[in-house]
Write a protein that binds this DNA or RNA. Structure first.
Lengths: 257, 257
DNA sequence: CGTTCAGTTGACCATGATCAAGAGTGGTGG
DNA sequence: CCACCACTCTTGATCATGGTCAACTGAACG
Protein backbone atom coordinates (compact mmCIF):
# COMPACT_ATOMS: atom_id res chain seq x y z
CA UNK A 1 0.00 0.00 0.00
CA UNK A 2 1.20 3.55 -0.65
CA UNK A 3 2.52 5.57 2.26
CA UNK A 4 -0.33 7.43 3.95
CA UNK A 5 1.81 10.49 4.63
CA UNK A 6 2.72 10.88 0.97
CA UNK A 7 -0.88 10.40 0.01
CA UNK A 8 -1.95 12.98 2.53
CA UNK A 9 0.57 15.63 1.50
CA UNK A 10 -0.11 15.12 -2.19
CA UNK A 11 -3.68 16.03 -1.45
CA UNK A 12 -2.38 19.55 -1.10
CA UNK A 13 0.83 20.13 -3.05
CA UNK A 14 2.44 18.40 -6.01
CA UNK A 15 5.53 16.50 -4.91
CA UNK A 16 8.57 15.52 -6.92
CA UNK A 17 10.04 12.04 -6.91
CA UNK A 18 12.78 13.34 -4.65
CA UNK A 19 10.16 14.61 -2.20
CA UNK A 20 8.40 11.28 -2.19
CA UNK A 21 11.65 9.37 -1.70
CA UNK A 22 12.55 11.57 1.22
CA UNK A 23 9.18 11.04 2.84
CA UNK A 24 9.34 7.31 2.31
CA UNK A 25 12.80 7.21 3.89
CA UNK A 26 11.59 9.30 6.81
CA UNK A 27 8.72 6.95 7.52
CA UNK A 28 10.76 3.77 7.29
CA UNK A 29 13.74 4.78 9.35
CA UNK A 30 12.51 4.82 12.91
CA UNK A 31 9.16 3.23 13.40
CA UNK A 32 7.56 1.99 16.59
CA UNK A 33 4.52 0.01 17.54
CA UNK A 34 2.39 1.31 20.39
CA UNK A 35 -0.30 -0.67 22.20
CA UNK A 36 -3.85 0.65 22.63
CA UNK A 37 -4.52 3.16 25.44
CA UNK A 38 -0.83 4.04 25.78
CA UNK A 39 -0.03 7.75 25.81
CA UNK A 40 2.25 8.69 22.95
CA UNK A 41 2.66 12.27 24.15
CA UNK A 42 1.75 13.70 27.54
CA UNK A 43 0.57 17.16 28.48
CA UNK A 44 3.45 19.02 30.13
CA UNK A 45 6.16 17.05 28.33
CA UNK A 46 8.86 18.93 26.50
CA UNK A 47 8.30 17.86 22.92
CA UNK A 48 11.15 15.71 21.55
CA UNK A 49 10.08 14.28 18.23
CA UNK A 50 7.41 14.41 15.62
CA UNK A 51 5.40 11.26 15.11
CA UNK A 52 3.88 10.31 11.80
CA UNK A 53 0.90 7.97 12.12
CA UNK A 54 1.47 5.09 9.71
CA UNK A 55 -1.28 2.79 10.89
CA UNK A 56 -4.03 2.89 13.49
CA UNK A 57 -5.94 5.66 15.28
CA UNK A 58 -4.94 8.01 18.09
CA UNK A 59 -6.70 10.86 19.84
CA UNK A 60 -5.55 14.26 21.04
CA UNK A 61 -7.16 15.10 24.35
CA UNK A 62 -7.07 17.52 27.24
CA UNK A 63 -8.03 16.65 30.82
CA UNK A 64 -9.52 18.84 33.52
CA UNK A 65 -8.38 18.51 37.12
CA UNK A 66 -11.65 16.91 38.15
CA UNK A 67 -11.32 14.05 35.71
CA UNK A 68 -13.43 15.33 32.86
CA UNK A 69 -11.76 14.70 29.53
CA UNK A 70 -12.25 16.22 26.13
CA UNK A 71 -10.96 14.71 22.93
CA UNK A 72 -9.96 17.61 20.67
CA UNK A 73 -8.91 15.73 17.53
CA UNK A 74 -8.22 12.33 16.09
CA UNK A 75 -5.04 11.29 14.34
CA UNK A 76 -5.32 8.74 11.57
CA UNK A 77 -2.72 7.46 9.10
CA UNK A 78 -0.94 10.33 7.39
CA UNK A 79 -1.45 12.72 10.33
CA UNK A 80 1.37 14.27 12.34
CA UNK A 81 1.83 14.79 16.08
CA UNK A 82 2.98 17.44 16.66
CA UNK A 83 4.55 20.46 15.03
CA UNK A 84 4.71 22.08 18.46
CA UNK A 85 8.13 20.52 18.55
CA UNK A 86 10.00 23.40 17.05
CA UNK A 87 8.15 26.19 18.65
CA UNK A 88 6.46 25.63 21.95
CA UNK A 89 8.32 24.40 24.96
CA UNK A 90 5.57 22.33 26.55
CA UNK A 91 2.88 20.12 25.18
CA UNK A 92 -0.49 21.57 26.12
CA UNK A 93 -2.38 18.34 25.48
CA UNK A 94 -1.84 14.58 25.32
CA UNK A 95 -2.02 12.06 22.52
CA UNK A 96 -3.17 8.50 23.17
CA UNK A 97 -3.27 5.39 21.03
CA UNK A 98 -6.80 4.12 20.43
CA UNK A 99 -5.86 1.05 18.40
CA UNK A 100 -2.48 -0.55 18.09
CA UNK A 101 -0.44 2.15 16.43
CA UNK A 102 2.41 2.16 13.98
CA UNK A 103 4.27 5.46 14.04
CA UNK A 104 7.47 6.84 12.56
CA UNK A 105 9.48 9.03 14.89
CA UNK A 106 11.24 11.99 13.31
CA UNK A 107 13.82 13.77 15.42
CA UNK A 108 14.52 17.46 15.56
CA UNK A 109 17.60 17.46 13.36
CA UNK A 110 16.19 15.22 10.69
CA UNK A 111 13.04 17.25 10.55
CA UNK A 112 15.00 20.44 10.34
CA UNK A 113 17.04 19.11 7.46
CA UNK A 114 13.87 18.16 5.61
CA UNK A 115 12.17 21.51 5.92
CA UNK A 116 15.29 23.39 4.83
CA UNK A 117 15.91 21.15 1.80
CA UNK A 118 12.43 20.27 0.62
CA UNK A 119 10.27 23.35 0.14
CA UNK A 120 7.34 21.40 -1.30
CA UNK A 121 7.21 19.30 1.81
CA UNK A 122 7.37 22.39 3.98
CA UNK A 123 4.47 23.94 2.13
CA UNK A 124 2.46 20.77 2.43
CA UNK A 125 3.12 20.63 6.18
CA UNK A 126 1.87 24.19 6.57
CA UNK A 127 -1.19 23.15 4.70
CA UNK A 128 -1.82 20.17 6.94
CA UNK A 129 -1.38 22.42 9.94
CA UNK A 130 -3.90 24.98 8.74
CA UNK A 131 -6.43 22.31 7.82
CA UNK A 132 -6.06 20.83 11.26
CA UNK A 133 -6.77 24.26 12.72
CA UNK A 134 -9.85 24.53 10.54
CA UNK A 135 -11.01 21.18 11.89
CA UNK A 136 -10.61 22.56 15.40
CA UNK A 137 -12.84 25.47 14.49
CA UNK A 138 -15.48 23.11 13.18
CA UNK A 139 -15.35 21.13 16.40
CA UNK A 140 -16.01 24.30 18.38
CA UNK A 141 -19.09 24.82 16.21
CA UNK A 142 -20.03 21.20 16.69
CA UNK A 143 -20.06 21.19 20.47
CA UNK A 144 -21.20 24.81 20.71
CA UNK A 145 -24.20 24.81 18.40
CA UNK A 146 -25.34 21.39 17.35
CA UNK A 147 -27.76 18.97 19.00
CA UNK A 148 -26.63 15.53 20.12
CA UNK A 149 -27.88 13.91 16.96
CA UNK A 150 -26.21 16.50 14.76
CA UNK A 151 -22.92 16.28 16.62
CA UNK A 152 -22.66 12.54 16.27
CA UNK A 153 -23.75 12.50 12.64
CA UNK A 154 -21.21 15.23 11.96
CA UNK A 155 -18.43 13.25 13.58
CA UNK A 156 -19.22 10.20 11.48
CA UNK A 157 -19.16 12.30 8.30
CA UNK A 158 -15.87 13.94 9.13
CA UNK A 159 -14.03 10.78 10.05
CA UNK A 160 -15.34 8.94 7.03
CA UNK A 161 -14.15 11.65 4.63
CA UNK A 162 -10.79 11.95 6.33
CA UNK A 163 -10.29 8.21 6.05
CA UNK A 164 -11.42 8.30 2.46
CA UNK A 165 -8.89 11.00 1.62
CA UNK A 166 -6.06 8.69 2.66
CA UNK A 167 -7.57 5.66 0.96
CA UNK A 168 -8.81 3.88 4.06
CA UNK A 169 -12.43 3.41 3.11
CA UNK A 170 -13.97 0.56 1.20
CA UNK A 171 -17.03 1.76 -0.66
CA UNK A 172 -19.45 3.04 1.96
CA UNK A 173 -17.59 1.41 4.85
CA UNK A 174 -14.58 2.01 7.02
CA UNK A 175 -13.00 0.74 10.20
CA UNK A 176 -14.31 2.52 13.24
CA UNK A 177 -12.53 1.62 16.48
CA UNK A 178 -14.05 4.29 18.74
CA UNK A 179 -16.09 3.28 21.75
CA UNK A 180 -19.26 5.13 22.66
CA UNK A 181 -17.27 6.53 25.52
CA UNK A 182 -14.75 8.04 23.11
CA UNK A 183 -17.59 9.56 21.14
CA UNK A 184 -19.01 10.98 24.35
CA UNK A 185 -15.68 12.61 25.23
CA UNK A 186 -15.51 14.00 21.71
CA UNK A 187 -18.98 15.46 21.52
CA UNK A 188 -19.33 16.68 25.08
CA UNK A 189 -22.19 14.27 25.77
CA UNK A 190 -22.53 11.37 28.17
CA UNK A 191 -21.97 7.81 27.01
CA UNK A 192 -25.57 6.97 27.87
CA UNK A 193 -26.90 9.69 25.66
CA UNK A 194 -24.49 8.78 22.86
CA UNK A 195 -25.82 5.26 23.04
CA UNK A 196 -29.42 6.35 22.67
CA UNK A 197 -28.60 8.77 19.88
CA UNK A 198 -26.65 6.18 17.91
CA UNK A 199 -29.59 3.82 18.20
CA UNK A 200 -31.75 6.54 16.75
CA UNK A 201 -29.37 7.06 13.81
CA UNK A 202 -29.39 3.31 13.24
CA UNK A 203 -33.17 3.14 13.40
CA UNK A 204 -33.35 5.88 10.78
CA UNK A 205 -31.06 3.92 8.49
CA UNK A 206 -28.38 6.62 8.50
CA UNK A 207 -25.58 4.40 9.73
CA UNK A 208 -24.69 0.77 10.25
CA UNK A 209 -22.20 0.37 13.06
CA UNK A 210 -21.14 -3.02 14.33
CA UNK A 211 -17.98 -4.78 15.30
CA UNK A 212 -15.80 -1.71 14.80
CA UNK A 213 -17.05 -1.17 11.31
CA UNK A 214 -19.03 1.84 10.11
CA UNK A 215 -21.18 1.85 6.97
CA UNK A 216 -22.89 4.97 5.66
CA UNK A 217 -25.53 3.84 3.18
CA UNK A 218 -26.52 7.38 2.18
CA UNK A 219 -23.83 9.97 2.77
CA UNK A 220 -26.00 12.89 1.72
CA UNK A 221 -28.69 11.93 4.19
CA UNK A 222 -26.17 11.67 7.01
CA UNK A 223 -24.64 15.00 6.05
CA UNK A 224 -28.09 16.51 6.20
CA UNK A 225 -28.64 15.08 9.67
CA UNK A 226 -25.33 16.55 10.86
CA UNK A 227 -25.55 19.90 9.05
CA UNK A 228 -22.26 18.79 7.60
CA UNK A 229 -20.50 20.84 4.95
CA UNK A 230 -17.13 19.37 3.94
CA UNK A 231 -15.56 22.66 2.85
CA UNK A 232 -13.68 23.02 6.14
CA UNK A 233 -11.69 19.86 5.44
CA UNK A 234 -10.19 21.49 2.35
CA UNK A 235 -10.09 18.19 0.56
CA UNK A 236 -9.25 18.72 -3.08
CA UNK A 237 -11.09 15.98 -4.88
CA UNK A 238 -14.22 15.00 -3.03
CA UNK A 239 -16.12 12.00 -4.26
CA UNK A 240 -19.41 12.59 -6.01
CA UNK A 241 -21.45 11.18 -3.17
CA UNK A 242 -20.43 14.12 -1.04
CA UNK A 243 -22.43 17.29 -0.89
CA UNK A 244 -20.61 20.59 -0.71
CA UNK A 245 -23.67 22.28 0.71
CA UNK A 246 -23.96 25.83 -0.55
CA UNK A 247 -21.94 25.02 -3.69
CA UNK A 248 -24.13 22.15 -4.79
CA UNK A 249 -25.73 24.21 -7.56
CA UNK A 250 -22.41 25.04 -9.19
CA UNK A 251 -21.12 21.49 -9.32
CA UNK A 252 -20.52 22.00 -13.02
CA UNK A 253 -17.36 24.05 -12.59
CA UNK A 254 -15.97 22.09 -9.70
CA UNK A 255 -12.62 21.73 -11.46
CA UNK A 256 -12.12 25.46 -11.12
CA UNK A 257 -11.29 25.18 -7.44
CA UNK B 1 2.32 53.41 22.58
CA UNK B 2 4.47 50.56 21.27
CA UNK B 3 3.23 48.57 18.33
CA UNK B 4 1.04 45.69 19.53
CA UNK B 5 2.34 43.32 16.88
CA UNK B 6 5.94 43.82 17.94
CA UNK B 7 4.96 43.40 21.55
CA UNK B 8 3.10 40.24 20.71
CA UNK B 9 5.89 38.64 18.68
CA UNK B 10 8.52 39.53 21.24
CA UNK B 11 6.51 37.52 23.69
CA UNK B 12 7.82 34.51 21.82
CA UNK B 13 11.11 35.22 20.07
CA UNK B 14 13.84 37.79 20.51
CA UNK B 15 13.78 40.30 17.68
CA UNK B 16 16.59 42.44 16.34
CA UNK B 17 16.26 46.16 15.66
CA UNK B 18 16.00 45.35 11.98
CA UNK B 19 13.11 42.98 12.71
CA UNK B 20 11.33 45.63 14.72
CA UNK B 21 11.85 48.27 12.07
CA UNK B 22 10.46 45.98 9.43
CA UNK B 23 7.39 45.23 11.53
CA UNK B 24 6.83 48.89 12.27
CA UNK B 25 7.07 49.72 8.58
CA UNK B 26 4.66 46.90 7.73
CA UNK B 27 2.07 48.17 10.17
CA UNK B 28 2.26 51.79 9.12
CA UNK B 29 2.20 51.37 5.38
CA UNK B 30 -1.34 50.39 4.57
CA UNK B 31 -3.76 50.82 7.39
CA UNK B 32 -7.53 51.00 7.28
CA UNK B 33 -10.29 51.84 9.67
CA UNK B 34 -13.27 49.53 9.77
CA UNK B 35 -16.59 50.32 11.44
CA UNK B 36 -18.22 47.98 13.98
CA UNK B 37 -20.17 44.96 12.68
CA UNK B 38 -18.52 45.13 9.25
CA UNK B 39 -17.09 41.87 7.94
CA UNK B 40 -13.38 42.11 7.33
CA UNK B 41 -13.16 38.67 5.77
CA UNK B 42 -16.01 36.48 4.55
CA UNK B 43 -16.33 32.73 4.48
CA UNK B 44 -15.87 31.54 0.91
CA UNK B 45 -13.68 34.48 -0.11
CA UNK B 46 -10.36 33.79 -1.75
CA UNK B 47 -7.89 35.22 0.75
CA UNK B 48 -6.06 38.31 -0.60
CA UNK B 49 -4.19 39.91 2.26
CA UNK B 50 -3.19 39.45 5.83
CA UNK B 51 -4.60 41.91 8.32
CA UNK B 52 -2.79 42.93 11.46
CA UNK B 53 -5.10 44.20 14.18
CA UNK B 54 -3.66 47.48 15.43
CA UNK B 55 -6.58 48.66 17.51
CA UNK B 56 -10.00 47.32 18.46
CA UNK B 57 -11.57 43.88 18.68
CA UNK B 58 -12.80 41.48 16.01
CA UNK B 59 -14.24 38.00 16.10
CA UNK B 60 -13.76 34.93 13.95
CA UNK B 61 -17.03 33.11 13.44
CA UNK B 62 -18.72 30.39 11.48
CA UNK B 63 -22.42 30.33 10.58
CA UNK B 64 -24.74 27.39 10.07
CA UNK B 65 -27.33 27.40 7.31
CA UNK B 66 -30.16 27.79 9.80
CA UNK B 67 -28.78 31.01 11.25
CA UNK B 68 -26.99 29.66 14.29
CA UNK B 69 -23.62 31.31 14.71
CA UNK B 70 -20.53 30.28 16.63
CA UNK B 71 -17.67 32.61 17.43
CA UNK B 72 -14.49 30.55 17.27
CA UNK B 73 -11.91 33.14 18.32
CA UNK B 74 -11.37 36.79 19.06
CA UNK B 75 -8.74 38.99 17.46
CA UNK B 76 -7.29 41.78 19.56
CA UNK B 77 -4.39 44.14 18.85
CA UNK B 78 -1.30 42.22 17.78
CA UNK B 79 -3.31 39.35 16.29
CA UNK B 80 -3.25 38.35 12.62
CA UNK B 81 -6.03 37.38 10.22
CA UNK B 82 -5.21 35.11 8.53
CA UNK B 83 -2.25 32.99 7.53
CA UNK B 84 -4.61 30.97 5.36
CA UNK B 85 -3.54 33.39 2.69
CA UNK B 86 -0.59 31.48 1.42
CA UNK B 87 -1.96 28.05 1.70
CA UNK B 88 -5.67 27.53 1.53
CA UNK B 89 -7.71 28.73 -1.42
CA UNK B 90 -10.92 29.62 0.41
CA UNK B 91 -11.67 31.16 3.76
CA UNK B 92 -13.57 28.66 5.85
CA UNK B 93 -14.84 31.27 8.30
CA UNK B 94 -15.55 34.99 8.56
CA UNK B 95 -13.99 37.79 10.59
CA UNK B 96 -16.10 40.69 11.80
CA UNK B 97 -15.26 43.95 13.53
CA UNK B 98 -16.74 44.23 17.01
CA UNK B 99 -15.48 47.72 17.78
CA UNK B 100 -14.13 50.26 15.36
CA UNK B 101 -11.02 48.58 14.05
CA UNK B 102 -7.65 49.80 12.91
CA UNK B 103 -5.88 47.21 10.77
CA UNK B 104 -2.79 47.09 8.61
CA UNK B 105 -3.19 45.23 5.36
CA UNK B 106 -0.20 43.21 4.21
CA UNK B 107 -0.29 41.91 0.67
CA UNK B 108 0.98 38.61 -0.61
CA UNK B 109 4.27 39.88 -2.07
CA UNK B 110 5.22 42.03 0.88
CA UNK B 111 4.47 39.22 3.26
CA UNK B 112 6.46 36.81 1.19
CA UNK B 113 9.44 39.13 1.18
CA UNK B 114 9.27 39.41 4.95
CA UNK B 115 9.20 35.71 5.66
CA UNK B 116 12.08 35.03 3.31
CA UNK B 117 14.27 37.82 4.70
CA UNK B 118 13.41 37.83 8.39
CA UNK B 119 13.72 34.39 9.93
CA UNK B 120 13.02 35.61 13.47
CA UNK B 121 9.73 37.04 12.32
CA UNK B 122 8.87 33.83 10.54
CA UNK B 123 9.54 31.83 13.68
CA UNK B 124 7.45 34.20 15.74
CA UNK B 125 4.58 33.90 13.27
CA UNK B 126 4.70 30.11 13.54
CA UNK B 127 4.56 30.52 17.25
CA UNK B 128 1.54 32.77 17.11
CA UNK B 129 -0.13 30.28 14.81
CA UNK B 130 0.47 27.34 17.13
CA UNK B 131 -0.69 29.28 20.17
CA UNK B 132 -3.84 30.20 18.32
CA UNK B 133 -4.40 26.53 17.59
CA UNK B 134 -3.91 25.75 21.26
CA UNK B 135 -6.55 28.34 22.09
CA UNK B 136 -8.91 26.58 19.71
CA UNK B 137 -8.33 23.33 21.57
CA UNK B 138 -9.11 25.01 24.86
CA UNK B 139 -12.34 26.40 23.43
CA UNK B 140 -13.38 22.89 22.43
CA UNK B 141 -12.82 21.86 26.03
CA UNK B 142 -14.72 24.92 27.21
CA UNK B 143 -17.91 24.30 25.27
CA UNK B 144 -17.58 20.51 25.50
CA UNK B 145 -17.01 20.04 29.21
CA UNK B 146 -17.64 23.11 31.29
CA UNK B 147 -20.85 24.41 32.86
CA UNK B 148 -22.27 27.79 31.90
CA UNK B 149 -20.64 29.47 34.87
CA UNK B 150 -17.29 27.87 34.17
CA UNK B 151 -17.40 28.73 30.47
CA UNK B 152 -18.07 32.39 31.06
CA UNK B 153 -15.53 32.71 33.86
CA UNK B 154 -13.00 30.97 31.62
CA UNK B 155 -13.66 33.38 28.77
CA UNK B 156 -13.13 36.38 31.03
CA UNK B 157 -9.84 34.95 32.28
CA UNK B 158 -8.56 34.23 28.80
CA UNK B 159 -9.40 37.58 27.32
CA UNK B 160 -7.99 39.44 30.28
CA UNK B 161 -4.64 37.63 30.06
CA UNK B 162 -4.45 38.03 26.31
CA UNK B 163 -5.06 41.74 26.66
CA UNK B 164 -2.53 41.92 29.45
CA UNK B 165 0.11 40.25 27.30
CA UNK B 166 -0.14 43.09 24.79
CA UNK B 167 -0.29 45.78 27.43
CA UNK B 168 -3.97 46.59 27.18
CA UNK B 169 -4.97 46.13 30.78
CA UNK B 170 -4.89 48.68 33.53
CA UNK B 171 -4.39 47.01 36.87
CA UNK B 172 -7.31 44.65 37.34
CA UNK B 173 -9.37 46.23 34.56
CA UNK B 174 -9.63 46.19 30.80
CA UNK B 175 -11.96 47.30 28.05
CA UNK B 176 -14.59 44.73 27.29
CA UNK B 177 -16.74 45.57 24.28
CA UNK B 178 -18.58 42.24 23.95
CA UNK B 179 -22.34 42.11 24.29
CA UNK B 180 -24.01 39.30 26.17
CA UNK B 181 -25.11 38.10 22.77
CA UNK B 182 -21.50 37.79 21.64
CA UNK B 183 -20.70 35.86 24.79
CA UNK B 184 -23.64 33.58 24.09
CA UNK B 185 -22.39 32.85 20.56
CA UNK B 186 -18.95 32.18 22.00
CA UNK B 187 -19.95 29.82 24.76
CA UNK B 188 -22.76 27.98 23.03
CA UNK B 189 -25.34 29.32 25.49
CA UNK B 190 -28.34 31.58 25.01
CA UNK B 191 -28.16 35.28 25.76
CA UNK B 192 -30.77 34.90 28.48
CA UNK B 193 -28.73 32.30 30.28
CA UNK B 194 -25.54 34.30 29.85
CA UNK B 195 -27.32 37.22 31.47
CA UNK B 196 -28.34 35.21 34.50
CA UNK B 197 -24.93 33.62 34.84
CA UNK B 198 -23.11 36.95 34.65
CA UNK B 199 -25.38 38.28 37.36
CA UNK B 200 -24.37 35.31 39.46
CA UNK B 201 -20.68 36.01 38.89
CA UNK B 202 -21.29 39.63 39.85
CA UNK B 203 -23.20 38.66 42.96
CA UNK B 204 -20.28 36.45 43.98
CA UNK B 205 -17.89 39.36 43.57
CA UNK B 206 -15.88 37.59 40.88
CA UNK B 207 -16.27 40.29 38.25
CA UNK B 208 -17.35 43.87 37.84
CA UNK B 209 -18.69 44.52 34.37
CA UNK B 210 -20.24 47.79 33.41
CA UNK B 211 -20.14 50.22 30.52
CA UNK B 212 -17.81 48.04 28.43
CA UNK B 213 -15.30 47.74 31.21
CA UNK B 214 -14.32 44.53 32.98
CA UNK B 215 -12.67 44.41 36.39
CA UNK B 216 -11.45 41.21 37.98
CA UNK B 217 -10.91 41.93 41.67
CA UNK B 218 -9.49 38.46 42.43
CA UNK B 219 -8.00 36.72 39.43
CA UNK B 220 -7.27 33.51 41.31
CA UNK B 221 -10.86 33.23 42.45
CA UNK B 222 -12.15 33.74 38.92
CA UNK B 223 -9.68 31.20 37.57
CA UNK B 224 -10.95 28.74 40.15
CA UNK B 225 -14.52 29.36 39.07
CA UNK B 226 -13.58 28.74 35.43
CA UNK B 227 -11.20 25.82 35.98
CA UNK B 228 -8.79 28.06 34.15
CA UNK B 229 -5.16 27.09 33.69
CA UNK B 230 -3.19 29.62 31.64
CA UNK B 231 -0.61 27.15 30.32
CA UNK B 232 -2.40 26.78 26.99
CA UNK B 233 -1.82 30.46 26.21
CA UNK B 234 1.95 29.86 26.29
CA UNK B 235 2.53 33.33 27.68
CA UNK B 236 6.12 33.68 28.78
CA UNK B 237 5.99 36.05 31.71
CA UNK B 238 2.71 35.75 33.52
CA UNK B 239 2.01 38.26 36.23
CA UNK B 240 2.13 37.04 39.79
CA UNK B 241 -1.57 37.30 40.28
CA UNK B 242 -2.06 34.47 37.85
CA UNK B 243 -2.26 30.89 38.94
CA UNK B 244 -0.62 28.24 36.79
CA UNK B 245 -2.83 25.60 38.31
CA UNK B 246 -0.97 22.35 38.75
CA UNK B 247 2.34 24.18 38.99
CA UNK B 248 1.29 26.48 41.80
CA UNK B 249 3.36 24.60 44.37
CA UNK B 250 6.59 25.07 42.45
CA UNK B 251 6.18 28.79 41.96
CA UNK B 252 9.66 29.19 43.39
CA UNK B 253 11.43 28.08 40.23
CA UNK B 254 9.13 29.85 37.86
CA UNK B 255 12.06 31.45 36.07
CA UNK B 256 13.19 28.02 34.90
CA UNK B 257 10.47 27.82 32.27
C1' DC C 1 -38.44 61.95 20.67
C1' DG C 2 -39.07 57.82 18.64
C1' DT C 3 -36.42 53.82 17.30
C1' DT C 4 -33.19 50.40 18.11
C1' DC C 5 -30.51 47.49 20.70
C1' DA C 6 -28.55 45.65 25.07
C1' DG C 7 -29.83 44.05 29.24
C1' DT C 8 -33.24 42.05 32.50
C1' DT C 9 -36.97 39.21 34.45
C1' DG C 10 -40.53 35.52 34.77
C1' DA C 11 -42.92 31.22 33.57
C1' DC C 12 -42.52 27.06 31.53
C1' DC C 13 -40.22 23.41 28.88
C1' DA C 14 -36.83 19.97 26.74
C1' DT C 15 -32.52 18.19 25.94
C1' DG C 16 -29.42 15.68 27.80
C1' DA C 17 -27.33 14.29 32.66
C1' DT C 18 -27.33 11.17 36.47
C1' DC C 19 -27.83 6.92 38.81
C1' DA C 20 -28.38 2.21 38.72
C1' DA C 21 -28.55 -2.31 37.04
C1' DG C 22 -27.98 -5.95 33.79
C1' DA C 23 -26.43 -8.32 29.22
C1' DG C 24 -22.93 -9.40 26.00
C1' DT C 25 -18.02 -9.94 24.82
C1' DG C 26 -13.16 -10.69 24.96
C1' DG C 27 -9.02 -11.45 27.34
C1' DT C 28 -6.35 -13.69 31.01
C1' DG C 29 -4.62 -16.65 34.29
C1' DG C 30 -5.24 -20.70 37.13
C1' DC D 1 -10.41 -25.25 29.09
C1' DC D 2 -12.99 -22.72 31.94
C1' DA D 3 -13.96 -19.09 35.38
C1' DC D 4 -13.55 -14.65 36.23
C1' DC D 5 -12.84 -9.93 35.36
C1' DA D 6 -13.12 -5.84 32.89
C1' DC D 7 -15.15 -3.25 29.60
C1' DT D 8 -18.63 -1.91 26.35
C1' DC D 9 -23.21 -1.56 25.34
C1' DT D 10 -27.99 -1.26 26.72
C1' DT D 11 -32.22 0.08 29.25
C1' DG D 12 -35.18 2.45 32.70
C1' DA D 13 -36.37 6.08 36.01
C1' DT D 14 -35.66 10.51 37.58
C1' DC D 15 -33.49 15.03 37.64
C1' DA D 16 -31.29 19.59 36.38
C1' DT D 17 -29.08 22.62 33.46
C1' DG D 18 -29.94 25.55 30.29
C1' DG D 19 -33.45 26.75 26.35
C1' DT D 20 -37.68 29.10 24.75
C1' DC D 21 -41.01 32.61 24.64
C1' DA D 22 -42.54 36.92 25.96
C1' DA D 23 -42.60 41.28 27.92
C1' DC D 24 -40.42 45.28 29.83
C1' DT D 25 -36.55 48.79 31.10
C1' DG D 26 -33.03 51.87 30.07
C1' DA D 27 -29.49 53.98 27.38
C1' DA D 28 -27.72 55.67 22.93
C1' DC D 29 -28.42 58.00 18.91
C1' DG D 30 -30.11 60.21 14.88
Amino acid sequence: MPNALIRRLEEYTPLTDADRDELARLCSQSSHTIPPTRDLIREGDAPRSIYVILDGWACHYRSLEDGRRQIVDYAIPGDLCDLNLFILDRMDHSVRAITRLKVAEVGREVFHRVITNFPNITTALWWVELVSKSIHREWIVNVGQRSARERIAHLFCELFLRLESVGLTDGFSCDFPLTQNDIADTTGLTAVHVNRTIQELRRDGLIVLERQRLTIPDMLALQGAGLFNPDYLHIRRLNRHTDTGRDAHKAGNEEGR
